[in-house]
Design a binder for these strands. Structure first.
Length: 848
RNA sequence: GGCGGCUUGGCGGAAUUGGUAGACGCGCUCGACUCAAAAUCGAGUUCCUUGUGAGUGUGGGUUCGAUUCCCACAGCCGCUACCA
């Protein structure tokens, strides 16, 4: 028990090959102009989502995607591509800072230690990364360009005519004032209600709130001055250009829904006895005749103004209740509608009827105009509300069938709607919008759910903004001052006030000329928005990526990266933010493609052995280090690919690792004896076994095709079939065996390299026709089967298999089938009505 | 509530321009080797009432033939959530 005997000596040869690849720079990827660059080779850029280097190290989910891309990368390399397959670290982030708060240790120290551990683990898996291109988002040389790109965004505005970002210098030239320009910058400062977490000491993006609340942190709503990025200007392009990408439809849909485009109309309602109008957005202008009341969000600016004295107390009370409610889980409050009457009325523009104005928390200030026209006859929420508060419900749409109209939200025919009566929903919408425009009561409008991106944080471990303030105005730092690094702090504890932590460093903040530095920092997303660009040219100190290099690694397709593999958790945020930055850089002429990632594949989650999500608390976490030391890196790689389809959620099974390990051991024993000699079974002679040759060629073909399809599990099963065939024959010819090794190489690179090297020593390099760096070719002729089984069915049920020439004409096949005893049993006394014959596959006799 | 995905042996999964359901692996059973065990090798392994039987979540449909196509339903998972 003390010494476990390894089925093959992976612990000897795996480190050996890893250090050889490293010292020989086997997987170095040359750029144009570099030594060894070959312009005739096509390029292939395959990218992993780089990890956040947490203290816990790699988990088994990481190698799933990384092995997949490694196989593709190695395969493309064997097929003559110049492959870019890099790795790095998304190393800014809150956990390093939380750790610093606890221990006082500078986040840079823990981050460096964690990166060291990740690097060691990644190397132990034998990935063919070009380690000279390794980057971390916290490197000063990287931060510099993250800040530079921010300044590009800061110095741009969105030109509505061209639908593109342009430098604000163009506006300066046109004589725009400083104030006017600041109002259109793609990066701007705004006082907005944000989610502030006192114990984390930072604001959080909407989309981060749930995550941190789940971890027990408190979050409250408060207005703060923040940096925002004007991503909403790109909403339409971010939707439209999805169509040009090879992404899973589910992810495209997720992004589309997130951006949330709705078509409809804005409608202006006059407020009775006031000289102001309230604008609402509706997707159903055809139901305007059914609008029997109006609802404002409690935070709507008009609420105070229009509330009558007798309703003031109730309205104030309700508003107060709502603001504290925002801290609670609102979903719990969804069930019951609540609201209060303001005492004011609005005039429905189409029928001049006075309708009451209510406030209710089912209307959100953040979407549309923060006000709605309520059509309780044809909207579920409005109906619920109207029923509760006894408001009038009017039918304005007649469903096509006889179904109940109350709460009917579908398309139908307009009724009780004046000039719309009799029109279909679609026509009624068009006509109503025309009417609204004619009467200046509204217009066609497209509304997006997407908000501008809250880009600032109050934490320490992020990129500082390259911005200074003087006299209430912000200024960009000159490029020559970049990178601007955060000063070291004694104490990282949040102060409890929303003042950014960097403001503690007075010497750093206060500049000689009376200017002060911006003390906010960028969110973690900043670094991951452009890392795929930096990999191309990681040590360039002149530019974030040189034009020539960018040009080389860019494709003719809209997306720059050929294949991007990572988890679905980034389906919306990272992928949307990166697309946005890329488009800005594209508009400004810094990159040549409109999209960053052409083909996207999401690997499925690996669950624990118990079928539950892996987590420390459940105790079902599998550590890749343990698997490597017990079964070897090749086994881990192969198992992760053999578990099932890459994109599927699947449970870990340690027995399965043993299974693939046994397979690799069989390959080893096939060629190497217990004494470490080349097995006498491997012969340097022509193979005469046609069937064996067929299996080998079938394997070359299928594995290649399966790799292209990312269908690694079936590729592995084919290689197992091939190995089983080798095992069952007396001798294995060297040529066939080496072909097989080449095909297995991208999956199990250590084992195959080791066997290959030993074969070279024994037989001499000349004896081995195929080089290990070439993907073998298969012979179509060797794949053809001439004789095989024809399946014969009677009335669609399998009754016999008959060995015959697979290209036999129907007459011959029919004779053979009818001569079969088994078939006779089923056709006796019956008439054969029809024969379906598909040569080589099936014959179906229809008889009764 | 909305959107998306999934459902095949004891388990992971294979097979779709409709054509042998269960490839490959795990597990299990039996055998060989061994003093014995492990490892390894070989044979078997959808189920049952063993039949001209049933069978890919359930019910229906199209077809000579359906895991694959169509309709309805159920269950599970993920995301999103009063989006007007």
């Amino acid at each position: 028990m003390s010494e476990t005997r390894k089925p093959f000596p992976f612990s000897e040869f795996e480190p050996k090959w890893q250090s050889r690849w490293e010292s020989e720079k086997t997987f170095r990827t040359p750029n144009p102009g570099d030594e060894g660059f070959d312009a005739s080779k096509p390029k292939y850029y395959v990218l992993d989502m780089f990890p956040y280097p947490s203290g816990a190290g790699l988990h088994v989910g990481h190698p799933e995607g990384y092995t997949a891309t490694d196989i593709i990368g190695r395969y493309k390399r064997m097929n003559g591509f110049n492959v870019l397959h890099p790795m790095g670290y998304d190393s800014f982030g809150l956990p390093a800072e939380q750790y610093a708060i606890k221990t006082g240790q500078h986040p840079a120290v823990t981050t460096a230690a964690n990166i060291g551990n990740f690097r060691r683990q990644l190397k132990s898996l034998g990935f063919a990364y070009d380690w000279e291109r390794e980057i971390a988002t916290t490197d000063p040389g990287y931060v510099r360009w993250t800040q530079w790109i921010f300044l590009q965004i800061y110095n741009s505005y969105f030109c509505e005519e061209t639908n593109k970002a342009k430098p604000v210098s163009e506006l300066e030239a046109k004589g725009w004032s400083r104030e006017q320009i600041d109002a259109v910058r793609l990066a701007y400062v705004a006082d907005t209600p944000v989610w502030w977490s006192p114990d984390l000491g930072t604001v959080l993006a909407n989309e981060e709130v749930e995550e941190w609340k789940g971890k027990g942190h408190t979050v409250e709503r408060r207005p703060l001055r923040q940096w925002m990025l004007r991503i909403t200007k790109y909403a339409q392009r971010l939707i439209d250009e999805l169509d040009t990408l090879d992404w899973p439809t589910g992810i495209k849909l997720l992004q589309k829904n997130w951006i949330g485009r709705s078509e409809g109309a804005s409608v202006k309602f006059q407020i009775s006895n006031f000289n102001s109008q309230v604008e609402v957005f509706t997707t159903r202008p055809d139901t305007l005749f059914g609008a029997t009341y109006m609802v404002l969000a409690p935070e709507h600016p008009f609420v105070v103004e229009i509330t009558t004295d007798e309703n003031k107390e109730a309205v104030e009370g309700y508003k107060k209740a709502c603001s504290s409610k925002s801290d609670l889980d609102r979903t719990d409050l969804n069930k019951d509608k609540s609201g209060v009457f303001t005492g004011a009325f609005a005039v429905n523009p189409v029928n001049k009827e006075e309708i009451p104005i209510w406030i209710a928390d089912y209307v959100m200030m953040g979407y549309g105009t923060g006000a709605i026209m309520a059509v309780p006859g044809h909207d579920g929420r409005d109906y619920e509300f109207a029923t509760k508060f006894d408001l009038p419900v009017v039918q304005v749409v007649q469903p096509k069938d006889e179904s109940e109209w109350q709460g009917f939200t579908g398309q139908g025919t307009a009724v009780n709607s004046g000039f719309l009566d009799g029109l279909s929903t679609w026509d009624a919408k068009t006509k109503m919008i025309a009417w609204l425009m004619e009467n200046e009561k509204g217009e066609r409008k497209i509304q997006f759910k997407l908000r501008d991106w809250l880009f600032s944080r109050q934490r320490y471990w992020g990129e500082p903004f390259p911005i200074t303030w003087k006299g209430g105005e912000h200024f960009a730092l000159p490029d020559s001052d970049l990178p601007l690094l955060a000063p070291p702090l004694e104490d990282y504890k949040p102060s409890g006030s929303p003042e950014p932590i960097l403001s503690k460093a007075k010497d750093w903040v206060e500049l000689e000329d009376g200017a002060i530095r911006e003390t906010n920092t960028m969110p973690q997303w900043a670094g991951s928005c452009w890392y795929y660009l930096r990999y191309c040219d990681p040590s360039n100190s002149e530019r974030f990526i040189s034009k020539e290099v960018e040009d080389y690694w860019t494709s003719e397709k809209p997306g720059m990266v050929d294949l991007y593999v990572g988890g679905t958790e980034h389906a919306v945020l990272h992928l949307l933010y990166a697309r946005f930055w890329h488009k800005v850089l594209f508009d400004l002429g810094h990159v040549g493609t409109p999209e960053p990632f052409q083909r996207l594949v999401n690997q499925g989650l690996i669950m624990g052995e118990d079928g539950q999500k892996m987590s420390k608390s459940r105790g079902n976490v599998v550590n890749p280090d343990d698997v490597v030391s017990e079964y070897g890196a090749d086994s881990l790689r192969l198992y992760e690919m053999f578990m099932g389809p890459l994109e599927q959620v699947k449970p870990w099974q340690m027995k399965g690792v043993e299974g693939v390990s046994r397979f690799l051991a069989r390959v080893w024993r096939l060629s190497i004896t217990d004494e470490g000699e080349i097995s006498p079974k491997i012969r340097d002679e022509e193979c005469t076994d046609k069937e064996l040759i067929r299996v080998v060629h079938e394997t070359i073909k299928k594995v290649g095709e399966d790799i292209e399809k990312l269908s690694f599990n079936t590729a592995i099963s084919q290689m197992m079939i091939c190995t089983n065939a080798f095992t069952q024959t007396e001798t294995v010819s060297l040529k066939e065996f080496v072909s097989f090794l080449s095909v297995l190489n991208p999956f199990a690179p250590h084992l195959t390299e080791e066997i290959h090297e030993r074969l070279c020593v024994k037989f001499g390099k000349e004896a081995i026709l195929l080089s290990e760096t070439d993907w073998p070719k298969y012979d179509e002729k060797a794949l053809i089967r001439t004789v095989g089984e024809l399946v014969v069915q009677v009335n669609g049920k399998l009754r016999d298999r008959i060995l015959m020439a697979l290209d036999a004409p129907e007459e011959t096949a029919k004779e053979l089938a009818l001569a079969s005893e088994k078939i006779k049993e089923y056709t006796d006394g019956k008439t054969i009505r029809k024969i379906i014959y598909i040569p080589g596959k099936i014959m179906n006799l229809v008889a009764n």
